[in-house]
Amino acid sequence: MFRRIFSIAANTFRETIRNKILYAILAFALFVIGMTFFLADLSVGDFARIIADVGLASIHIFGVIMAVFLGINLVSNEVDRKTIYIILSKPVRRFEFIFGKTFGLSVTLLLTTLAMATVLFLVHLSYRYGGRAEVGIFIASAGIYMELVLLTCLASLFSTFTTPVLSAIFTLSLFLVGHLTKYLYVLGEQSKAVGVRWGSRFLFYILPNLENFNWKNEVAYGGLKSFSILGWAAGYLVAYAACVLCLSCLLFARKDFK
């Protein structure tokens, strides 16, 4: 089982790194991150702030673009191109296929995130008014990466039952909502109606809370207080991703292919 998942993951990794559009997005992202080098000259104030606001935000945004772009096509491409016929006619179970595809893409995203973080790290290191090795960039990027993995799982969930365009819309909506669930909860609690309060609590717990992976500000303003936040986020990621993947497998298990 693990060998087959690994083979599918390795093949997915190979597929994504041979994707020219991914390289285009990555090249553009690295260019933008590299440009923060000059941005520091233009702005007044604290350089750390620039990293937080522009550098990490770029990694975040471009990472999301890559995750969504690759994630929505992850399963639907194979179904449309009928390559899945041959894979599933081998002794491969459908859940192994879903897990393998998702793991493969996660590895690709790990590399792209690492590449972007490294460039930002180098920009910071070579900053002409006193550069230094800011490890916090990698810590913040780890959070971004966890978020990307979760978005990948969501995108592939949608792509098991709907078109790429709709999958992209759903995933991006969840991305936006996922950063705002806190406000949803707060607003809900202010309501006088019991139904609204319970409804908003329900949504708060069921929707992905992507702010759990966001410690950009802590990193930018003097570092993380404790690393337990990372562990907590990783646990949340594993639990939530497992639920999403299981749901995908369930939806995929008895699907008829055209």
């Binding site: 083979s7 599918i8 190979r14 041979r18 009928k82 041959i86 081998k90």
Partner: peptide, 28 residues
């Protein structure tokens, strides 16, 4: 069971040899 679909389609980014290697892995 060996199965060949109608108008078979493969991963374009692989070579014939790489594709068969993948199939072999999946078949254990």
């Amino acid at each position: 069971i060996g199965f060949m679909p109608e108008q078979p389609y493969f991963y374009e980014y692989l070579t014939g040899g790489e594709f068969l290697r993948l199939c072999g892995q999946l078949c254990g």
